[in-house]
């Protein structure tokens, strides 16, 4: 079963954000990694980059497909996880843990309300599955 972690906020494009103060740690969900399959390549925004909620900020590629990574929040990238860029398979192994992607300093904390909580995201996944 696909894991959804409590306490995180989720986007409809399958990114998660852990909000701590005015910083969001961001990654892709377990559902996203399982849909993509073996991840082999990541492109992340460099620290200092301004990102906007809902807009592409990076690229994730598996053996079979390439996909954009959308920023779940707006703000400035303050850290990118070089460890996961060097070992992209970690996204498959630990999407909510070791394989976080970037940390973003929020420019508009109220935007977090646009994201789903774990219960809503589980519901969203169930609806997506039913629609297929």
């Amino acid at each position: 079963m696909v894991q959804v972690e409590q306490g995180l906020r989720y986007s409809r494009t399958h990114e998660w954000a852990r909000i701590e103060g005015d910083v969001a740690t961001v990654g892709v969900t377990d559902y996203a990694q399982s849909e993509l399959g073996d991840i082999t390549y990541l492109e992340l925004p460099q620290p200092g980059t301004q990102v906007k909620q809902g807009e592409p900020m990076g690229v994730i590629e598996s053996v079979k497909a390439a996909s954009d990574i959308y920023s779940p929040v707006s703000g400035e990238v303050i850290e990118a996880n070089q460890g996961v860029v060097d070992a992209p398979e970690k996204v498959n192994q630990s999407p909510y843990g070791e394989a976080w992607l970037v940390k973003i300093r929020l420019s508009d904390p109220s935007e977090v309300e646009n994201l789903m909580d774990a219960t809503a995201y589980e519901q969203f996944l169930a609806e997506e599955a039913a629609a297929r």
């Binding site: 399959g37 073996d38 053996v63 498959n92």
Partner: peptide, 8 residues
């Protein structure tokens, strides 16, 4: 089937 356990 495109994959069972994983392509790699």
């Amino acid at each position: 089937p495109v994959q069972y356990k994983g392509i790699i």
